[in-house]
């Protein structure tokens, strides 16, 4: 039997609370009104051509960078998926959306934002993401300290609670003060991107169901590659790799046909990645 790596934390452990504190800041407003009705749409892209293309390039690309290029390409045909939306009256559709790429940093994902203004070309964007891979380890992970038996003080708890309530209220009612809302949208876009891309394939995840936090309108999740067995031309069974993609989008704003067209566009670019070069 294995030895214990971590023992149980005590209730109200301050170090655990400190670790979660940062999450609470990030996720403040995790009440239902701040969520969009997130529908999950899945499609798979064949990988044969994609694998050849990304490995034969002068600067080979990883899966995440390739999908980011395809996503950027698809956004040119429908920018609605990279817009920010307050849930009712304010829809901001940027000309050059920034893409946030999820990076696993231990207990919480960190986001690497690639500016849409700077990298409007899909392949430039992909190269930038690929080149930034080496910077990723320098992103500070959330400290994960051992537990303690001390209890958090009531004052600390109340302070955190007040901070969170303030953030929640601000997010929910900032439509009353448009400059405040604009500031929130701008901060959101610069820190998290207009649309996010996460690759869960590195963790072996084969299926995912996500939800959508406003003001995002959609997110793209890449899962672990799958092998599909089908009869080949000579009658023998052959196996071919496919890449499953999940688009989580706001069902309230986008009908399913539009979401399918958008995701098909991403799949199209991954099926025949040369179209990304032809564009140039």
């Amino acid at each position: 039997m294995r030895t214990f790596e971590i023992s149980f934390w005590d209730r109200d452990d301050p170090s655990l609370s400190a670790m979660l504190d940062e999450r609470v800041d990030m996720l403040a407003g995790l009440r239902v009104p701040n969520f969009a009705a997130g529908a999950n749409l899945k499609m798979t892209a064949p990988m044969d051509e994609l694998n050849r293309w990304r490995k034969n390039r002068k600067h080979p690309l990883g899966i995440t960078a390739s999908v980011a290029a395809a996503l950027r390409w698809a956004l040119e045909s429908d920018g609605l998926f990279a817009s920010l939306f307050d849930g009712r009256d304010n829809l901001l559709v940027p000309d050059n959306p920034s893409i946030g790429v999820g990076v696993d940093a231990g207990n919480a994902a960190r986001i690497m934002v690639v500016s849409g203004e700077e990298y409007s070309d899909p392949l430039d964007l992909a190269d930038k993401i690929e080149a930034s891979k080496r910077d990723i380890p320098t992103i500070t992970p959330v400290p994960f300290s051992p537990g303690s038996k001390e209890k958090a003080s009531n004052f600390a708890k109340r302070k955190r609670w007040a901070k969170m309530v303030k953030q929640e209220l601000q997010e929910r009612f900032d439509y009353l003060l448009p400059p405040l809302q604009k500031r929130r949208f701008d901060t959101w876009a610069s820190q998290r991107g207009h649309i996010q891309l996460h690759n869960l394939g590195t963790h072996g995840v084969q299926e995912f169901k996500g939800l959508l936090r406003r003001p995002w309108v959609s997110m793209l999740w890449v899962l672990e590659k799958d092998e599909i067995v089908s009869p080949g031309d000579s009658g023998e069974f052959v196996s071919s790799p496919v890449l499953p993609l999940i688009l989580v989008y706001a069902q309230e704003l986008i009908p399913v046909d539009r979401a399918c067209t958008f995701l098909s566009k991403v799949v199209e670019a991954l099926t025949d990645p040369k179209c990304l070069e032809d564009r140039r």
Binding site: A37, G38, A39, N40, L41, K42, M43, T44, K209, Q251, V256, D257, C260, T261, L263, S264
Partner: peptide, 10 residues
């Protein structure tokens, strides 16, 4: 009919 292989509607 629109190509969805899996869809979790709300």
């Amino acid at each position: 009919a629109f190509g969805a292989e899996d869809f979790h509607a709300v």
